[in-house]
Structures are given as structure tokens and as C-alpha cells.
Amino acid sequence: MPAIKFHLNGELIQKTSGQSLAELASDLELTKKKFAIEMNGEIIPKSLHASTLIEEGAVIEIVHAVGGG
């Protein structure tokens, strides 16, 4: 897969080759945690993370639960 650039939580990320959302989550050591991914404004269900490739220029948000009232 060719190199790609995308936005992750507001930061521009460059990877030497393309990857799936599951691979991205694994790189971020999120695999065993509870998180949710949105790509280009759409929530991508966990069941599709492995089969969903990150698109060039994609805007990705990954969220988790933090303390709040």
C-alpha cells in the first residue's frame, strides 16, 4: 500500500504505507480498551475496523471515556 496522510484527532499523520483502522488502533495500543472511531464524519463500527482502510486525506476521530459529570 502507498504512503498516506490523514488527520487523527486534529493532527496530521503520515504513514509510509496505508493501513486499516484496526491496524491504527493497534499502533495506538487501544486494542484492549473501549474506544470508538469516526472517519469523515461517520462512525465505523468495531466489526468493520479490520476491513476499513484509511483513505488519503481522511479525517479520523478516536474517542474514549474520561472523567465527567
Binding site: E29, K33, A65
Partner: peptide, 24 residues
């Protein structure tokens, strides 16, 4: 109650997660 916020993206990968302390 919990809030929903961006995860850190590798800055503190081993930071403990709230839901590991407050299990659903």
C-alpha cells in the same frame, strides 16, 4: 457519568483508562 473525549494519540499510550477503574 462519564465524558467522551479524544484519545491521546500515542503521547501516553499506557495511561490508565477510566473504564478500567469504573467497569461497565
Amino acid at each position: 457519568t462519564v465524558a467522551i473525549r479524544r484519545t491521546n494519540i500515542g503521547q501516553n499510550a499506557d495511561e490508565p483508562n477510566l473504564l478500567e477503574f469504573i467497569s461497565p
